[in-house]
């Protein structure tokens, strides 16, 4: 466990000892702030049936932020180690492959969560400025943050997998972006009403991240969604582990 924690600390250190980490966090904060200001202006002009948290996820800004920042957050995980030559050193230390994979994933996920945590703070500020208690319902904020964390964990797992595949950070980022984009487009399909009501529709409904996030932003915590994200994360981490392990097969 100590080894695992040390590796996680090392991952976070890598993120926050460089300017890139801060630029990514600042970019996420800017997108969050821009979305909230946009929503505030909308709510000033007329009432809405939905709270700010729900309106926030009805916009595409959340997805832009996740789709664009997740590749940047994870592209370094394995690819940068390979390029700099530290990968071999790391893998020859008495550290298990799973410890490496899980620490890389945890480090990336913590980085993602740190960049998204200010969302709760922003809503809190908004609630005080507007003096509107309904803007900050703790249960809804908690479920919203849970939804953000679940989506983030999936994208971080995909990013770790993509980074493990290649030495090039650019290629890793592109692969993460493409898989994420494909998932997002698939998420959008059930909302188009073009799928009918068969097994295909149920499948896309089940994997629709847009639906999941909308549910969480309403304070509705679905166990089905939790199972989907947990299983998908496990699957991608398993694939990452297999890729890491593949060095022994050569």
């Amino acid at each position: 466990m100590r080894v695992y924690l040390t590796l996680v600390r090392r991952e976070l250190g890598m993120a926050f000892n460089s300017l890139t980490g801060y630029v990514v966090v600042a970019a996420v904060l800017f997108i969050l702030g821009f979305t909230l200001v946009d929503l505030v202006e909308t709510l000033r002009s007329g009432p809405s049936d939905a709270p700010v948290t729900e309106l926030f996820f009805r916009t595409y800004y959340f997805w832009y932020a996740v789709l664009l920042t997740a590749p940047v957050m994870t592209m370094r995980s394995f690819a940068a180690e390979r390029t700099s030559g530290t990968y071999e050193a790391l893998m020859t230390t008495p550290v298990g492959d799973w410890q490496v994979v899980l620490s890389k994933f945890t480090g990336a996920l913590l980085f993602f969560l740190i960049s998204w945590m200010p969302l709760a703070l922003m809503l809190f500020v908004l609630r005080h400025v507007a003096n509107e208690p309904l803007l900050f319902v703790p249960g809804i904020i908690a479920s919203t943050m849970l939804g953000v964390a679940l989506v983030g964990s999936l994208f971080m797992a995909i990013g770790c997998f993509a980074s493990a595949l290649t030495r090039s950070q650019i290629v890793a980022a592109m692969v993460t972006f493409l898989i994420g984009m494909a998932l997002w487009v698939a998420s959008y399909r059930p909302l188009t009403g073009l799928l009918g009501s068969g097994a295909q529709a149920r499948f896309f409904e089940h994997i629709s991240m847009i639906r999941h996030v909308t549910d969480y932003s309403r304070g509705q915590v679905e166990v089905t969604h939790l199972v989907f994200y947990t299983s998908a994360v496990c699957f991608f981490l398993f694939l990452t582990h297999r890729v890491i392990e593949s060095r022994r097969w050569k």
Binding site: A27, F34, P47, V52, M122, V129, L134
Partner: peptide, 23 residues
């Protein structure tokens, strides 16, 4: 019904703190 009754000054404060201050 969710409605925000904030003044122009408060909106300016939100804009500057959310778009400039925090990032």
């Amino acid at each position: 019904e969710y409605r925000l009754n904030i003044t122009d000054r408060q909106l300016r404060f939100l804009r500057s703190s959310l778009l400039l201050g925090m990032p």
